[in-house]
Nucleic acid binder design. Sequence first.
DNA 1: TTTTGCCTCGCCAGAATTGGGGAGTTGGAA
DNA 2: TTCCAACTCCCCAATTCTGGCGAGGCAAAA
Lengths: 233, 233
Amino acid sequence: MDDVIARLECAARLEELQSIIETLRDHYAVDDMVYHWVSSTGEQYGCGTYDPNWVTRYLERGYLRIDPVVIGCYQRFHPVDWKRLDWSGKAARAFMQDASEHGVGNQGYSIPIRGPNGQFALFTVSHTCDDDEWESFTELNRRDLILLAHYFNQTALNLEPGRKPEATQPLSPREVETMTLLAVGYSRAQVAETLSISEHTLRVYIESARFKLGALNTTHAVARAMARGQIVV
Amino acid sequence: MDDVIARLECAARLEELQSIIETLRDHYAVDDMVYHWVSSTGEQYGCGTYDPNWVTRYLERGYLRIDPVVIGCYQRFHPVDWKRLDWSGKAARAFMQDASEHGVGNQGYSIPIRGPNGQFALFTVSHTCDDDEWESFTELNRRDLILLAHYFNQTALNLEPGRKPEATQPLSPREVETMTLLAVGYSRAQVAETLSISEHTLRVYIESARFKLGALNTTHAVARAMARGQIVV
DNA sequence: TTTTGCCTCGCCAGAATTGGGGAGTTGGAA
DNA sequence: TTCCAACTCCCCAATTCTGGCGAGGCAAAA
């Protein structure tokens, strides 16, 4: 565990995660272990020990939007045993059938993990065994798995290319107030009244904020300010 | 550690967290330990060992939007030492000054943690000591702290009352596309063209999304969709 | 001292958004 | 089968936003 975390912390390339996760799989003596970055725009990144055919099939068929594990974890915070998910529904059943035909175990435990800007990933352990055995496995290793999920995600985020700092021009206090109030639904007139300034002055703030944020319109400016953490809503 | 987690897992009321965090503070022999749920609509919940005057002052003065710890953690995934944050800027300096006058230690370590629907919280340890001592403390206890942050947040989410009613109405695929394109700066006309639908149809999506999100206008809707993680920009 | 950034205010006209109607198809779930 | 949610399209009028013009005070930095 300790040396795995050390390896994760000093990994310099995403490819290293693959061998680390294989080591872990062997260490915990389970069938499969997977980390995957879940994104609406196709899989950003994933590593693990699933059959490559299954991974391909999963992506091709858009199982991301069907998989009860993904759907369920997206709404939860705590790690979840696959048994406790909602497998009713035709699509889910078919998916489960297909998965087991591709070698996915009957037991599973998935840990949702989230990063800045809505980043979302899953760390999953899967195995074939009876319920009691699985229960004791997850009980015993829950904390390890949570930590592993954390460190895997940390490494993936660090190594993700699109993480460039992108010198964000700081907003002035008034601009921050303006963007914040707009983000919580105030109209321009209301913001102006709230800040006790003329609506025209307000416009100046919006425009300068838009300029600083490189935004095309007010909505864009607010979205960017939020995404960059320049306002907290 | 083990019994603390056990207490966290079986806590039935938020108030119990306060005594748990005091126990932890004593156990780790640090000046302060705090868990707080970060939200613009006033502090949703917080517990910890800070001077109550400081907490009140923090809220009254809207330090949430100034505090470099909050701003910094909001953009990061990994735990962060306060020294590594950006303390330049007049407001940040004044804040730091004010904080230290209210008994906040010179050292600090904060762990950002995120839940579904854009929930965001911080788990913080603060102390007064020299850099070396602090360095070894954080090195030694990082994993414990990460786990504690996780379990505190899990408990807070479970006990949070406002978690039951229609958590979040999911957006339809078209609505997600619409919100996403608006968030990246497209005008309505451009979005309609991009999606190959009439602008009138587009309006229906915006309005239904706005309704589902409980938003007052388009900008608000986009902001909420982002904050809740329903769209990723 | 000059410059620079921030905060403040006004007017006008065109462009875009919003709110209120109504209506038809389709595919999946009950 | 029936029902519902999602997707598609249309009109009109009121409101709001945007873009371009210009202007002064103040405080900190260069």
